[in-house]
Amino acid sequence: MHQKQRKGFFVLSLLSLPILLIMTVMLTGAENAYGGNANGEEIYKINCAVCHGVKGDSKGEVCYNTNVEKSGKEITTYSRDFTLGVFKFRTTATGCLPDENDLKRIISTGIPKSFMPSFNDISPEEKMALIEYVESFSERWEEEDPCDVITTYMPNWVGKSYSVEKGKKIYQDMKCWECHGDKGDGAGPKADKLKDDWGHKMVPFDFTSGALKRGTAPEDIYITFTTGLDGTGMPSYEDTLGEDDRWHLVSYTLKLMGR
């Protein structure tokens, strides 16, 4: 992002020195590259550091929290270490950095199930400054080119009974049940031994609880198994399932959630 801005800046400077001059003054005067006065570091320290750590390494005072699931299972969730540069809730393929809009969304909605609060009162300008600051914790943002955003168009047959039937078979064939359980209750044969990439115990989602982290829209579910949740055991099925099959699977999982 920085780089693009700088390049554009350079082209301008060639066109006309006076413009460059004005921009230089603007850039040095502003606190961030978006031309606003919001201070990302300050906003971060006030709102985020308590969990994500002053250094972004997840070593804040409240770095984890334990919930009890509907099934009685305990889930301990750790706040994210931004120095890793790993994100779960992306609209980009597995292994990619998230899109800027993914981050904006997470900050607005929070992740209620993971005790991350929503920050609706942060203005759009402040949000951009905050995101820029969060990105500064990992060199990934400087080094990598952005990935394409996966767009979703939900067909009108999602939720119809024939689609639910097809989805049921796909849930079996794709072995979702090995982690998420035959009945979608999160009690598959692999469920007990799952760990995330950082060694913490992971609990696969219990569909019957319906308490999703990303969001409850059909598109959110579609995106979850399309992109995978990096860092957790939840893999990407983008290369394994065609788009229609993925929507059938959405139909079935909506049913599992009683929707």
Binding site: L84, K175, D197, W198, G228, D230, P235
Partner: peptide, 22 residues
Amino acid sequence: NTNLGIQLKGGKKRAVYNLALP
């Protein structure tokens, strides 16, 4: 599933691909 990631300093890991092969 093939969960491939870079080993970072301090035993940390960064996901590169996590792919289902059912």
